[in-house]
Nucleic acid binder design. Structure first.
Length: 464
RNA sequence: GUCCCCAUCGUCUAGUGGUUAGGACACCGCCCUUUCACGGCGGCAACCGGGGUUCGAAUCCCCGUGGGGACGCCA
């Protein structure tokens, strides 16, 4: 069975670049009827935190990137790594190294000074005597000559000269495994057939392949994905806005929009831009991923999010809107119209749910805030008769619905010799406090009879 | 510094030896219009440079340039 895995280290939030890796792994497994494994790489106990683990799990769940197996934790498998390492040592494929950190630093500095690639020179390969006061680490014995070939699904064939690869540490002084070693053991134990991961691991691959071979295990298929950069082409960082996926949720992005955006970074299917999850899983193939790095484009994500907001079921959006509104000062859900009605009125004019809550906020705030500039421009004394007429008409309106409101507005506009818009805009300002809202009839319906009449009266009070 | 990877509009990309180099986002203009949007139509805009290979290169090869990554008892 095809098996892919996503193996983040819980040292921070779930990065948007990591999410794309997870997505590609997930899609590939889905596409081939295989399994997607989630493994938490927490061998570095100093930096790993439970908060980060939760953030990863939370983010994956939000996006629907559910693992078929796991989450597995490397921290719970230390015995297994030590066992495998012991075997390597017994077979002479690994050896103790008694070099001190100071010694290693010095060695690297000298190598750099000589213009060489810094790396361990193998000075402990032959040593058999322990050094007093030093707890040894275990190093893997890499071949000294020849090449190691990585047949990458994205890059093609990449050849490394073994002389460029040094003997890496597989067990630290405290007996804990290092990343390179634990991945190899885990991928083998978990039956991972396809390793799909970030570009930054390409250079690590030959050493991992050598360890896998030394262990007599099958070498998985590799696919190294290009990196995702910030809009300015630099490495993605906090200053580029949201790098933490959960921030996208907070900002009102829909998970399917984020996924759709991410899947198109490095992958395409002709000219198609919109992909449902089902389409992605049917069409995606890691061999179609292109090799060059891509930049994050917030504009395009926004556009996609809007596409999904226009199409999503109102009930779902209502839930998102509820959360957005709830997080807002002065907004009281009970004080306004049903959320689904608001969603329908605003879905074509909101890029994110955050923005929707922002512009629909006036429906739920008890205090009325009038934009003075708008009032100065649209609430002119000359309008008083028309507004008065409208007020009367609305008071007598039996049925407070968009259609009846529209009739009332149209009738008053006609009677006063005004265009619909000439009446609508002042009413909008009077009722919403601003110049922007859904169509005025819809707006009046949403604001509700009581408030409309009260605000109209208040506006009239200003004019008279 | 050494090694590895990458290179089509501003951005994401299609393209796999012969195309007026296509689409999308953004931007600009027009239309629609009840504000804002949505939508429709149109426009601007690219093969990093130099050598080869070939009848013919965005496409294949080499060099350069630029960008990125790796070089930890981090992952």
């Amino acid at each position: 069975m095809i098996k892919t895995r996503f193996a983040p280290s819980p040292t921070g939030y779930l990065h948007i670049g990591g999410v794309r890796t997870a997505l590609f792994c997930w899609l590939y497994a889905r596409r081939h009827g295989g399994h997607f494994v989630l493994r938490i790489e927490d061998t570095d106990r100093e930096r790993s935190t439970q908060v980060a683990v939760d953030a990863i799990l939370d983010g994956m769940a939000w996006l629907g990137l559910d693992p078929d197996e796991g989450p597995f934790y490397q921290s719970q498998r230390f015995d297994r790594y030590r066992e495998v390492a012991a075997r390597l040592l017994a077979e002479g494929k690994a050896y103790h190294c008694w070099c001190t950190r100071e010694e290693l630093d010095q060695m690297r500095a000298q190598q750099q000074a000589r213009g060489e690639r810094p790396g361990y020179d193998g000075r402990c390969r032959q040593r058999s005597e322990p050094r007093p006061g030093v707890t040894p680490v275990l190093r893997f014995r890499m071949p000294l000559e020849g090449d190691t070939v990585v047949d990458d699904q994205v890059r093609g064939r990449v050849v490394f000269d073994n002389r460029e690869i040094d003997d890496l540490i597989i067990l630290r002084g405290d007996g804990s495994p290092t990343y390179h070693f634990s991945v190899v053991v885990d991928d083998a134990d978990m039956g991972i057939t396809h390793v799909i991961r970030g570009d930054d691991h390409l250079n690590n691959t030959p050493r991992q392949i050598r360890m896998i071979e030394a262990l007599g295990l099958p070498v998985p298929v590799y696919a190294h994905l290009p990196m995702i950069l910030g809009p300015d082409g630099a490495k993605l960082s906090k200053r580029h806005g949201a790098v933490n996926v959960l921030e996208y949720r907070e900002q009102g992005y829909l998970p399917e929009a984020v996924l759709n955006y991410l899947v198109r970074l490095g992958w395409a299917h002709g000219d198609q831009e919109l992909f449902s999850i089902e389409e992605m899983t049917r069409l995606f193939d890691v061999t179609d991923v292109n090799a060059s790095a891509a930049r994050i484009d917030p504009d395009k994500l926004n556009w996609l999010n809007q596409q999904y907001i226009k199409a999503a079921p109102a009930a779902r959006l209502a839930e998102g809107l509820r959360a957005q509104l709830a997080a807002r000062e002065g907004c009281e859900l009970a004080a306004g119209p049903p959320l689904e009605a608001v969603v329908e009125a605003f879905r074509e004019r909101a890029v994110t749910l955050h923005e929707m809550a922002e512009s629909a906020g006036f429906l739920y705030r008890s205090e009325f805030v009038l934009d003075e500039k708008a009032a100065a421009k649209h609430l002119k004394p000359a309008l008083a008769p028309a507004l008065q007429m409208l007020q009367q008409r609305l008071e007598g309106l039996a049925d407070w619905r968009r259609e009846t409101l529209h009739e009332a507005l149209a009738a008053v506009a006609e009677a006063c010799g005004l265009g619909f818009g000439k009446l609508g805009q002042p009413v909008r300002v009077a009722v919403t406090g601003g110049t922007v809202s859904p169509p005025i009839d819809v707006t009046l319906e949403l604001v509700g009879r009581e408030r409309v009449l009260a605000r109209l009266a208040k506006a009239l009070g200003r004019l008279l």
